[in-house]
Amino acid sequence: MKKSFFILLALSLIGITACGQTATNTTSTTNSAQAQSSSKAVTITDFANRNVAFTAAPQKIVALSNGEMDIVYALGGTLVGRPTAAGPVSIPEAKNVEQVGSTHGMDLEKVAFLSPDVVLGNNPLNTKDIPAVEGIGAKMVLTNANSIEEVMKQIQLFGQMLQKEDKAKQLNQAIEQKLKELKTNQSAVKPRVLMVYGAPGTYMAALNNSLSGSLLISAGGENIAADYPKLDNYPQYAQLNTEKIMKSNPQLILIMSHGNPEKVKDGFLKEMQQNAAWSSMDAVKNNKVEILPADLFGTNPGTKVIEALDMMNKLLQGVK
Rank of each mutant, 00 (worst) to 15 (best):
L215A: 07
S214R: 05
G201T: 05
V118W: 03
I91N: 14
V100K: 07
I130A: 15
V151L: 03
V189N: 13
P124W: 11
L142A: 08
V89L: 11
I175H: 04
D107K: 09
V118E: 01
G201C: 06
N126I: 06
V89W: 13
H104G: 15
L120G: 06
A188C: 02
Q177A: 13
M106F: 10
V151D: 02
Q170S: 14
P131T: 10
S147N: 08
Y203M: 06
K167M: 10
S115Y: 13
L179C: 10
P191K: 03
A219Y: 00
A145W: 08
G105S: 09
N123G: 01
G87V: 08
G201P: 05
N144R: 08
K183C: 12
N96S: 02
T143Q: 06
S147Y: 05
E93N: 13
G105V: 04
N172A: 01
A138N: 09
E93Y: 08
G105N: 10
V119P: 07
E134C: 09
L194C: 08
L182C: 03
G87M: 07
V118T: 05
L162F: 06
Y197W: 14
N185G: 04
S102P: 03
N185K: 13
F158Q: 05
T127I: 15
F113G: 09
L182P: 03
I155R: 03
V119Y: 05
L207T: 05
Q186G: 01
A85K: 04
L114C: 10
L171M: 11
P88Y: 11
A206K: 06
K95A: 15
K153R: 15
V151Y: 01
V189I: 14
S147A: 13
V119W: 04
T127L: 15
D107Y: 10
F113T: 15
V119H: 08
V118N: 06
T184K: 15
G159V: 04
I91R: 11
L108Y: 11
E150L: 07
P92Y: 09
K110Q: 02
I148Q: 00
I155Y: 00
V189F: 04
D129M: 03
A85T: 14
V196M: 01
I148G: 01
N146F: 15
S210E: 01
N144T: 14
Y203H: 13
K153L: 11
M106I: 15
G135E: 06
S218L: 03
L120V: 12
D129I: 01
K110R: 09
V193D: 00
G213F: 00
N126P: 02
L142H: 06
G159E: 07
Q163E: 02
N144P: 09
P116T: 11
L157I: 11
E98W: 08
L182W: 00
L216W: 04
K167W: 10
A145Y: 08
E176G: 12
L108K: 12
G87C: 07
N122Q: 13
V196G: 00
L120T: 12
L125H: 08
L179E: 05
N208I: 07
V119L: 11
I155W: 03
V100G: 07
E134K: 06
A168V: 10
V97G: 06
V141P: 02
K169W: 04
S102L: 03
Q173I: 07
I91A: 11
V189R: 13
G198W: 08
